[in-house]
Design a protein around this nucleic acid. Structure first.
Lengths: 331, 331
DNA sequence: TTAATTTATGCAATCGTTTTCAGGTTAGGG
DNA sequence: CCCTAACCTGAAAACGATTGCATAAATTAA
């Protein structure tokens, strides 16, 4: 099972490496008999071109990088499944990095991937990333970047996102139609694109149904579990809401800890809605309905755009923004 | 931000590439002044050696492969975190593949990683893998393999596992001490190492406390959700147990679907135990206690063994089996 | 003075592949 | 019999880095 090289084949067949190389790539310059001979022998010894040598020659690695805040999160792991399926089917490697919601880690990941010469990256920004100068810096080389889910304002990049506005709007409207009037909204820091869009959906639904937006019912939480618990406690103390709408996998979980602590103060009628891809939300108590994002598809679409760009020769000038629909999963 | 090569530096400084190379590696042959000059210039232009060129030269990629059944599973994603931390800190890349519990996919992943010239792999076997000839084949090259969690019988490999026997024993004993007498055990196919060990722990605990093992209360389920549901239904029909002990993240979830369907036939006293790293088990209804494996540590330990082996020159002859302790998380 | 040694540097091969350029053979047309 | 075209094939350079060997200059020893 030692690796066979072109040179080995050439020696065995008494040809030059160039002839063997051409024969295998089915060049018109090579005699049919020679081609057949080479092809058969290569097959027999199970020849595989050395991808590292190819990378060196072509100055491409046929690997792409992915930077996400966390793997241990259903949304991101599903998105990664999509990315991998698309990439592998096109002969690319995928290198996954986690920023753990830290800008510093995000920068390190970026540097690491760049030095490793990945051909491009897919990234969903960390919760502490407020600008993207560290990314612009790299994208000036011929290093393709596609954003998904958590995207920057800049219109100099391709982006793939869920329809956060409509998802939040639909969830809020559902709660209103269930007769809820005091709907709390617990969400991520406003630096994230998804936060703003979901907040907008929440507000618009309230407005549409003539319910005043109460800023006391809206809380922005960072990534410390205690923040989420404090937010829940403050809201319950302020005015016991009849519904909670939490805006990420993570927040839903942290808030649930708090709900359990103050269980007896919550009415049985209180409803819970999340913006998550948790595949176990229907097993929770109290029940958790969710806005589900097409995570897998988001992954395949983002990967497809990146790979298409890598494989096209000309520089892209107009950048796409793809918006995918969400759906409600009522528990 | 274009990549600088040794040649660029050599040209700029009017030296040969060999001198530059040696200067950067602080060779004793090079004049101190020259070294300083080169080091400063390299720093200035932010020179980074091309890892692909190095790989080609050294016939190593400084990348390792990981094959797991699923990423979207808390146990595996935590293990991957451990693997990545260890690998990145030592300058290695990690390429993650999923077998999706299919032997075919596992073989494909293996071939893919091998062709991509990863230096070694970490693998947790798919649920449909009954022998490891496909792995032996590769390990004959100088291609290091370390197993974790789901390991084969062979003693020709390094392995890192949880103490499945003791974990299952402790969980079963806990249930018995809670007064449970009819404890159902729903588990994976017997082909998996973890299945046998956990089953053994379950049986030994029953024996110790003088409870007869009832084979009707033991079910082996493949990876189709319907199998798990059928198993639950059969057990309830046969004899309503006072406790269920399910043996994986996946099975716990599938079984819960069935529990919810037959909720009113189950007593409030029925207890549920899983062998899982679900980080949300305490939010479930009915409550789910779990045997938790040190997934992160399993990842770091396995990666450490693999990398140590890769970096040591001599062939390893005696293979380690590391067994890590589990703990109970009671909900 | 000459030979030997040290010091500092460069040349060239190597890893595996592709590709440009050039060379050689054969056949056919004049 | 010569010229050209068509058809095959091989040598060599290139990608970026490392390293054994050669070489030049400078220093020391005899």
């Amino acid at each position: 099972m030692e690796a066979v090289t072109l040179k080995d084949i050439a020696k065995a067949l008494n040809l030059s490496t160039s002839t063997v190389s051409r024969a295998l790539r089915d060049s018109y310059e090579i005699n049919e008999n020679t081609k057949k001979l080479v092809a058969e022998y290569a097959q027999k010894v199970n020849y595989r071109p050395n991808p590292i040598a190819l990378s060196l020659k072509e100055n491409k690695s046929r690997a792409i990088g992915v930077i996400v805040p966390e793997i241990a999160n259903n949304f991101f792991s599903q998105a990664i499944n999509g990315i991998e399926d698309e990439a592998y089917s096109r002969g690319y490697h995928v290198v996954i990095c986690q920023s753990h919601e830290s800008l510093e880690r995000e920068k390190e990941n970026l540097r690491h991937l760049f030095e490793r010469r990945v051909d491009g990256i897919l990234i969903s920004l960390s919760g502490n990333t407020t600008d993207i100068v560290h990314i612009l810096e790299y994208s000036e080389s011929n290093f393709a970047v596609v954003f998904f889910d958590r995207v920057p304002d800049s219109d100099r990049f391709h982006k793939v996102v869920a329809d956060n506005f409509l998802g939040a709007f639909a969830a809020t409207e559902y709660l209103i139609k269930q007769g809820k009037k005091r709907i709390a909204h617990i969400t991520s820091p406003l630096t994230l694109s998804i936060t703003k869009e979901r907040l907008e959906g929440y507000k618009k639904a309230l407005e549409k149904h003539g319910i005043a937006v109460d800023n006391q019912l809206i809380k922005y939480c960072g990534f410390d579990p205690e923040e989420a618990k404090a937010a829940v406690n403050e809201i319950i103390d302020y005015q016991n809401p009849d519904a909670f709408f939490t805006c990420s996998d993570r927040l839903a979980l942290h808030c649930y800890e708090a709900f359990q602590n103050r269980k007896n103060e919550l009415s049985n009628e209180t409803q819970f809605f999340g913006f998550t891809n948790l595949n176990v939300s229907h097993l929770f108590s109290p029940k958790l309905s969710t806005v589900v994002q097409p995570a897998y598809e988001m992954g395949t679409r983002a990967a497809k755009i990146l790979l298409d760009q890598l494989e096209s020769k000309r520089k892209v000038k107009d950048f796409e923004k793809i918006v995918l629909e969400t759906y409600l999963k009522i528990s």
